[in-house]
Design a protein around this nucleic acid. Structure first.
Lengths: 250, 250
DNA sequence: ATGACTTTGTGCATTTGTTCACAAACGACG
DNA sequence: CGTCGTTTGTGAACAAATGCACAAAGTCAT
């Protein structure tokens, strides 16, 4: 499934004269909304599941159900990538996988460096789904000498001092920060200085980065707190306070 | 800092006649917007940092900077909880910690069960920041007998068969799913059947739950894919395609 | 007390995202 | 070749979130 070549002719968009080669932009004229980008990976996963099951064509209703979203939203999302559906039929699964992958930039192979080989860093390095498609862990670093050399998943831990050299020679564009909160900003600064422009931060701190660097954060305790909020709200309701969220009015 | 009792008199909201006791709702009349709820934990963390540093009062500008958001947004967010600032001065740090914690429901102590003691589950159980405030890991479960009994962090692994009993006796309201994708839905169903209504899902699947159950997901590979999208876009721009995202027009 | 200065809280315009609902486009079938 | 049933793609209405800009409300110095 690596080489998707001949496919139902893309039903060329009439107005736009783009015969472009490979992984360029501008295929997506107005740019793709952030909310849409955040959902594309979910669609992609659903598509892979369907493909594995041997399904070759899928309608927006089914795909939307598999992804847990409204079908109109799904269609609008996909329409930002181009017009790849067939009216009266649906979408060709394999072809859509290809298009979504390309939109996300997953046809290139991204090298990732994980900084921090503690519990979380090691779990990330071993986590299968982490590297599913399009990503590979180029290095796992830690400043603790006693961890250096240890085998974790497919890589062995190297010393954090090598960060700059590794980034430079491996062409790494994505860094994952899995160090304690106190060390995160320093690691971030080093990654940025070394040329990394995309950072996934697991440390519970707000990172400061220069313009042009993209940071996303994953914070487990924040997710728990959001859950707690809703749980509390539910239990307050059940307690007989405001059953309907439109009642309290002096 | 566990017991926040006497504090600057809450500057009672004029209109609303609520003398309510403890952890009730309705203090927040129109409900709190989701986007705001998602940011409250960030503010809370920034406030704790400030408190640790001995700061007793903070203006919206500074707090906003620490949280990485616009100051107007911060003020509007906080205004949903009530009017707890002092014009010309700012916010009392300790008091705001108390109010935000209460809004999030963190004054109660939530018991959490982690299902799956693989790499990720163990990392979660050991992750300090996971249980910072208001949460405690009541149990760590796995279906693999060879893991049962193993000590991880402050708990020892118990067998997944005990799930129902543990949930019932520990008053657990929050479940964390850290099992492989294939087992996630089944675990989810069992958690729900046992009475859990808040679920944090790390497995890369869309969970189906009945009405009234709240699911949040954390998907590492999705975050990476979103990063890849932006990285690709940047590199396409640098390549001289469309410098300004408003050019291509036939 | 008074005035100068600071900072909150919020009305409003703008942007971003969601959902509905339907015309246009397609395959199938006679 | 035309009609029928299906499904996409999208205009338009609606809803949510953001950010500006400023009046109201407070402190502090004199």
């Amino acid at each position: 499934m690596s080489n998707v070549a001949e496919l139902p002719s893309p039903s060329n968009e009439p107005g736009s004269p783009d015969q472009l080669d490979g992984q360029t932009d501008r295929l997506y004229p107005g740019g793709i909304p952030d909310a849409t980008v955040a959902r594309l990976p979910i669609y992609l996963r659903a598509l892979y599941t369907l493909a594995d099951r041997g399904v070759s064509t899928v309608a927006s209703d089914e795909l939307a159900a598999a992804a847990g979203v409204n079908s109109a939203k799904l269609r609008k999302d996909l329409s930002h990538l181009g017009s790849y559906g067939i009216r009266g039929v649906g979408y060709d699964v394999e072809y859509l996988v290809y298009q979504v992958s390309r939109a996300l930039g997953l046809n290139q192979n991204w090298a990732v460096v994980i900084v921090g080989a503690g519990n979380l860093g090691r779990a990330l390095a071993r986590y299968g789904g982490f590297v599913t498609r399009g990503f590979r862990i180029a290095a796992l670093l830690d400043s603790d000498q006693s961890l250096v050399g240890r085998e974790v998943g497919s890589v062995s831990v190297r010393h954090a001092g090598e960060l700059e050299e590794i980034v430079a020679t491996s062409g790494i564009a994505i860094g994952v920060i899995a160090v304690p909160a106190g060390a995160a900003q320093a690691v971030c600064d080093r990654l940025v200085a070394a040329g990394v422009t995309s950072i996934l931060n697991f440390a519970p701190v707000v990172l400061t980065v220069p313009e042009g660097v993209d940071v996303r954060k994953v914070d487990l305790s924040i997710e728990l707190q959001i859950l707690a909020f809703h749980a509390q709200r539910r239990s307050a309701e059940r307690f007989g306070q405001v059953a309907d969220p439109a009642a309290a009015e002096a």
